[in-house]
Write a protein that binds this DNA or RNA. Structure first.
Lengths: 218, 218
DNA sequence: ACTCGCTTTAAACACTTGTTTGAAATGAGT
DNA sequence: ACTCATTTCAAACAAGTGTTTAAAGCGAGT
């Protein structure tokens, strides 16, 4: 994944490789020796620079968040000129791309996923810095789309309805790859799937609207 | 979870306890010694009865499936007198209850979830015996609901839209418990959430119908 | 009472793991 | 050229792992 660069300080190389390895096999299955070998670094370096494997994990996590947030800026949803329906479509598109990203960044996603799946003490920080911003962003879009008078609980449930439709492409990849590969075979298929989710959701959301504005239709 | 019963053969006790422990901490973090201690059994028993820890895991998995399938019979969806909308509502209700089941059976669910999340060689068998039946059941309901002329891909995508809405309550429990506990605070709340998913989906599905039958409305 | 197959047991084995250690290498400041 | 703090290294350590072993216990059939 990340080719060996001798000019990168061993500290940074360790962090980078650790994130990758932890993402691939999880905290427990990741061995210090494997990480050090891949980083072309002596075994003792982990304890020298990070005190322990646990501490390395925590640092690797927050490093991964920084990277993800750096590559996926989230400010382009504040634009009030774009219709909320459009924003929702964009949100779903972006999310699906992110979840199916198998590159460098994808491994950071996997890392976060692991943390959700079996939380360590680091989860609380992740929730605050990584998950919550995404959730409130979607919540805002939905509140705009449905109208201010739609109650919070309905908005939240709808938010999970939409998130839920996207998430299987991250956490049930093993099933989808085996039984429904056509859904994500190529970028076009992914976009079609995203479009389905958008259509599905927009139609569903109509029933919860409390706004009179009836000029936004397919 | 399962209190020690001296009259139960050690073989059965091992299987039972192994399923619990594997579900709790995963294959790698589960130690043979922990399993044996909980089962009031000598360490060597695992290798005596099951040849290896790996083999024990596989057997524990298929044992878990048998138990789950025994407790959740799936034949009451063949009844042709029930409207497909009703069937969908029932399906979602059942699934949500299952996914949120924290009892004895819940641990079997966790076991299966783990297998989906990080597949071992055992996944293929699980897909066949445990996952596929559920999926095709939902697929059938949807095909009935949408009409025979709706294409398979749309049906499959819709199936994942519905499944996806339910699955977060299993695999993102850590987030929901922390940020949205009201959604599943008690049986009533769970039912309300299930009802939301049903309404959301039925409204969404309308746009994909290819059947003329227009007498099924909210 | 004795045998013989099955089961249980404590101890040991072989291996991997995270971590520590103390010496060697490195390199900037003088 | 020397110093000294920082970094790297091979080797060893201590603890935990799955597995094996060989002896002891047990229980029905004769």
């Amino acid at each position: 994944m990340s080719e060996f660069n001798p000019h990168e300080a061993t500290f940074d190389r360790l962090l980078q490789v650790a994130a990758e390895v932890f993402a691939e096999v999880g905290f427990r299955d990741a061995t210090v020796r494997e990480i050090c070998t891949r980083a072309n670094v002596n075994v003792a370096s982990v304890n020298y620079y990070f005190r322990s494997k646990d501490a390395l994990y925590v640092q690797a996590l927050s490093f991964a968040f920084q990277e993800v947030n750096r590559h996926y800026p989230k400010d382009h949803f504040l634009d009030q000129t774009i219709a909320p329906e459009q924003k929702l479509a964009r949100f779903i598109d972006d999310l699906l791309m992110k979840l199916l990203d198998d590159s460098q960044l994808g491994c950071f996603n996997k890392l976060i996923l692991r943390e959700i799946y079996e939380p360590t003490k680091a989860l609380d920080e992740i929730l605050l810095t990584c998950i919550m911003p995404q959730l409130t962003q979607l919540e805002d879009i939905l509140q705009q789309l449905l109208g201010e008078k739609t109650d919070k609980l309905t908005v939240q449930r709808s938010m999970w309805s939409i998130l839920g439709q996207c998430l299987p492409f991250l956490h049930s990849r093993s099933i989808i790859d085996r039984l429904y590969p056509e859904l994500i075979a190529n970028p076009l298929a992914i976009q079609a799937t995203a479009q389905h989710i958008t259509q599905f959701s927009l139609q569903a959301l109509k029933q919860f609207k409390t706004l009179p504005s009836g000029d936004t239709d397919a």
